[in-house]
Structure formats: C-alpha cells, structure tokens
C-alpha cells in the first residue's frame, strides 16, 4: 500500500501537489551540525533582541 504522501504528491491539480518541497541540499543543510550550531546562536540572538526591544 502506498503512503498518502506517495499517493498524493503526483496527483495533478490537488492542493498538495502545488506545495513547495525541499531539495536534497536543503534537507542536508537542515541537519548539518556546523550550520545548525551557527543558526542556534544566531536565532537565539535574534529572539533575544526581539524580546528585549518589544517592551519598555
């Protein structure tokens, strides 16, 4: 039995078929430890700035 993902991804004109999907490179970078360590700190810093700057 095919999964819903397999059944729907090639079903023309379904909303599901129009969704953007990640490339293999995108999937790789999402799990690349070095890039993710950088993102961990960068996103934390961004969130910190948003939180601190949002109230007085």
């Amino acid at each position: 039995m095919a999964s819903i993902h397999e059944r729907l991804k090639n079903e023309p004109y379904s909303e599901y078929s129009f969704a953007t999907r990640p490339t293999n490179a995108t999937l790789f970078w999402r799990r690349c430890i070095i890039k993710q360590i950088y993102l961990f700190f960068a996103l934390n810093l961004k969130i910190m700035r948003i939180v601190v700057g949002g109230h007085s």
């Binding site: 990640p22 970078w29 999402r30 799990r31 430890i33 890039k35 993710q36 360590i37 993102l39 961990f40 996103l43 934390n44 961004k46 700035r49 948003i50």
Partner: peptide
C-alpha cells in the same frame, strides 16, 4: 528583517 521562518535541527535544540 525581524520576521523569519527557518526549519532545522537548531530549532529543536532551541
């Protein structure tokens, strides 16, 4: 510049 959407392992760690 302050509105982001990022998917990845870092999000889970956070």
């Amino acid at each position: 510049d302050k509105t982001v959407g990022v998917i990845g392992l870092a999000g889970h760690w956070m």
